[in-house]
Each structure stands twice: as C-alpha cells, then as structure tokens.
Write a protein that binds this DNA or RNA. Structure first.
Lengths: 191, 191
DNA sequence: CATATATTTCAGTTTGTTCAGAAATTAATG
DNA sequence: CATTAATTTCTGAACAAACTGAAATATATG
C-alpha cells in the first residue's frame, strides 16, 4: 500500500506518432474482419511499426489493455508463428518482435488458415464422394460434391506452387500476369 | 384455433440422405471458421445439394430453424450474390437456388472479401505512406508501411489477372505450376 | 532460501452474437 | 377492400467471446 505501486503502472509507455496510432487502430479494426481479435491485431501492428522489440509491460501501457490480455494475445501470435521472443543480457523480461518480411508472414498465415479452413472440408468431401453407391443412388449430390472437391484440390495444388516463390518472383508474376493470363486462356479455348 | 394450424408446421419437409446431412452439418461448422454464421452456411449447403430450388418453408422444415432465421440468412446469401430467387407459375412463394459453377461462386466471394478485408487497408496505407515528412521524421515506420502496401498491391494486381481466367485455365495453371514457378524463380535470381 | 520481479491462470464482468417467436409489413385473391 | 398467405423486421433470451483484476505460479538474484 505504498505510493510506489502507482508509479509503476505507467513505467514504460511508448510514444506513438499519429501515423502509428492510426495504423494500429485500423489494424485492430480489420482484425475482426479477418477473424482475429482486436487486441491480438493491435499488438501485431504495434510490433510491426516498432523498431525495437517490446516487453509485455510496454505493450500493456502503450495500448492500454490489461497485462493478462497482452499475455494471452502474444501467446496467440506466437501460435501463428509470426512473433518471437528475444532476451537481453541483464534483463529477465521477454521482449517480442515480429518478422520483417511481409511475404514470409503471409505464407505462414496462409498455411495455417488453409490447414484450419480448407483441409477439413477437403477431407470430408473426399470421404463423401467415395461413399459406396452414391454415384448411382444420388448422382446429383455426387456431382455437386465432386465439383467442390475438384475445385479445392486445384486451388490447393496451385497455391502450393506459388507458396514456394520468392517475393521477387511473385512481383514479377504480377507484372507479367496479363500476358500469362491470355496465354493460358488461349491455350484452353483452342481445346 | 382450428386443428389445421398444426398441420401446416411440417408441410414440406425434405428428405435428406446421410451424405447430404453430413455435408450440410460440416459446411455449417466450417462457416464459423470462415466468419459466416452457421445457419447461413447450412442453407447454402442445402441449396448446393438440392436439385430443385427451395422455398423458405422447405428450408425451415428441413434444417429445423426458425422461419425468421431463414429469412435473414437468405438475405445475407443474396447480399453475397450467390443465391437467387426463382418464381413458378401459380405459386407466389419465392424459390431459392445457388449457382452451379464453383469457380464462379469463388470469384464472387473473393471479390466481396477483397473489398471488405483488403481494400480499406490498402486505402489507409496509401494515405499514411504519403503523410508529409513521414519518410524523413520516421523512416522506419514509413518503410514498414510501404512494404505492406507494396505487398498488398502486388497481390491485388496478381489476383486481378487470375480472376479473369476460366476454370479450365486455372486448372491448367495448377498443372503447369511447377514449371512456371521454377521459370520465374530462375529469372529473378539472374537479376 | 527469502525477496523481488515476471508471467500465467482463473473467476467474474462486460460485450457481442445467434436465434426463436411475435409483431408488422407486404403482396395476392376473391 | 377485407381476408389470407408470404415475408421481413423487431425483441428479448440464451449463448459465446473478449477482457479485466486478482491470485497463483514461475523465475531470477543477492
């Protein structure tokens, strides 16, 4: 019950520029649209614009959320594999930072989302399409499910090719996209 | 208060095969992972495996959800542009059906999601990156935001190319992906 | 090993979402 | 234009998720 307890509350508040604030708030709002909770997204944004790694207390003070909330949120970001811990000599606290490479980050998140949001459906569809006699007894449903499965498999295969490319390669593909597109389009119409 | 009121409750229940049931239930569960509510996803699944268009009452009875819930959910599906109304001579009820072409459905949904989940961020980033003096006063943040923006723009441009392709063209790209990928990879390392 | 510091877990509260049923609205029919 | 059928909107209850503050646990240091 000493007066020092209060002094600790805002021991390491970070000063954010207006630009940084707007980015963090926006990223937090978009989080909900992406299925990520606001605090998690805000912390991620903060780490993205922060030059140096931050400890949990700094994050707490800067974003004005509960310490426990920061703990849980960081855990989730680590679960996604986009936030890492750093330690400093003479400091026992955990310092967090996020990867610099946006393409790398995208790849990691895309892989996780595919695993959670696509793979289970692909598995079930495979099973259902192979249901004995389905093709005969209910050809319509069989056809519909099979179309869906084929589509998912095609997209998956295609994603796996793209996933391996370097950022530079992706950028080049985007630039050459128009040509490529028409190339493939022609190739198929010929058939 | 006549006895006819009760008879109406289950007037047009649809008979679903076990396969159809499993698909509908699974699609409903996955819905939450995709940010779509369960009933909306279930109705969508039901329409996908239903050969004929269904009216609201049939959907209500088959899925055992409230009539009002069906109304709201169908509205949302129409909002996504993947469910349409059909009318029949001598029947004033609305009949609903979903498009057959999976690739077409994907395109529509992808476009909507891009619009909701990507475009606002791209807009903000463009604005922030152009903040006067940011490059000088806070080069680190500027760099980070700019990287993000560039990435989003690249992916967007690339998506726009792909979006125009036919299903067949996509499938071909997936098959040729490996070759293409290494082609681009080589091209960039040379630079 | 006692103390200080850092982190995680937990219970309770707040906030947001889903859903069924009632009420209101819209459209059709004689 | 009154009646019936079809559909949408509104409302409150049940449920689920996010968040906080406090307590419990873990870790370092003299």
């Amino acid at each position: 019950m000493t007066e020092t307890t209060d002094a600790k509350v805002l021991s390491h508040p970070l000063t954010l520029t207006p630009t940084q604030k707007r980015f963090i708030l926006h990223w937090g709002e978009m989080g909900s649209k992406w299925g990520v909770n606001r605090t998690v997204a805000q912390i991620h944004a903060l780490l993205m614009v922060s030059k140096d790694p931050l400890n949990a207390e700094q994050i707490t003070d800067t974003l004005a959320v509960a310490r426990s909330n920061v703990s849980t949120s960081i855990r989730e970001l680590q679960g996604w594999g986009i936030v890492e811990v750093i330690h400093r000599l003479g400091d026992r606290r955990d310092y967090f930072h996020t990867m610099q490479d946006v393409w790398q980050m995208f790849r990691i998140v895309a892989a996780k989302r595919k695993q959670r949001e696509i793979d289970p459906t692909a598995d079930l569809l495979r099973e259902l399409v192979e249901t004995p006699d389905l093709k005969e007894t209910d050809p319509y449903t069989h056809q519909r499910l099979n179309n869906l499965l084929t589509f998912i498999q095609t997209m998956t295969r295609w994603y796996q090719q793209v996933e391996r490319l370097s950022p530079k390669a992706i950028s080049n593909m985007a630039k050459l996209g128009a040509k490529l597109g028409s190339m493939f389009e022609r190739r198929t119409t010929k058939r």
